[in-house]
Amino acid sequence: MSEYNFAYLDEQTKRMIRRAILKALAIPGYQVPFASREMPMPYGWGTGGVQVSAACLMPEDTFKVIDQGADDTTNAVSIRKFFEKTAGVATTEETARASVIQTRHRIPETPLGEDQILVYQVPIPEPLRFLEPSEVETRKMHALEEYGLMHVKLYEDISRHGAIATAYAYPVKVAGRYVMDPSPIPKFDNPKLGDCPAIQLFGAGREQRIYALPPWTAVVSLDFEDHPFEASKAAADCALCGAGDSYLDEVIVDDEGGRMFVCSDTDYCRARRAAGHVGAQGAPEGVA
C-alpha cells in the first residue's frame, strides 16, 4: 500500500473528478467535462470508469467489476486487481454484497439497492455524435434542447427495418431534459436506469466526460406512440440456469452451427444454479 496513494490517483485529481461528479448529479444527464488522466491501461479499457471509481472508493467498500455481465473476463479481472492493490478494498463477484460496482455494458440482473453505486465505463458519451460530428454543434443542441435529429434517426430505423433497430446504447431522456447515452448497454437494460435506488455514474476517459443519474430519476427511452420502446432479448431461456428473465449471450458451441444461450450476468446465473435451478443443457450444481 505504501507504493501508491489511496486509489492510485493523486488528491488534486480526485478533487477535480469529485467536483465534476457533484455537478453531474446536480444536472442529471448533462455531460460534465473533466481533465481525464493517463491511466495505466489503454483508452477503451475503462479509464473513465476507473477514474470515477478511484474518486468514489473508500477503504470500507466492497468492489465488483463486470465486463458484459461477467466477473471473470480480462478487463474485469484486471480492474478488480488494480483497486485491490491500490485501494486495498475488498472485492466480490456477488452483486448484492458490492457497495461499488464498475460495469462495462451491462446493468446487473439483481436489483440494486440504496447503498450501492454503479459506475459505467463509457466509450462515446455524446448520444448525438454519430448524427453530428461537431462538438460545438452538439453542445448547442443540448443547450437548446434540440433533439429532433435523434428522433429522425430512430424514424429512419423504422422506415428501413420496420422497427427501431437500435439494440444497444439506446438513447434516453433524463428527468425530462437531457438526452443521454446510457453507454452501450443492451436496450434490455434500459428500464433499469430509471427510478433506480442506486447512484449511477458514467465516466468516459478518452472523451473526458462524466455524467450521472441520481437515484429515483425519471429516465425515458426515446420512442414513438405507434412504435413504443421495447426491451428485447433473445427468445430463449438460459441453457445453464433456465432463467427466462435475464439477458442472454449467444454462444457458438461447435462447427455445425450449434449454439446455446446463457446468462450474460455470470453472478446471477451462478446464484440461480446454486439455488438448484437447472437449464436445458445445465448439469445440477456439484455434478461435473
Partner: peptide, 14 residues
C-alpha cells in the same frame, strides 16, 4: 477525504 466525499455525494444525490 474519500469517506467525506462519499457523504457529500450521497447528500447531493439524495
Amino acid at each position: 477525504s474519500a469517506r467525506a466525499f462519499r457523504a457529500v455525494m450521497r447528500a447531493m444525490a439524495r
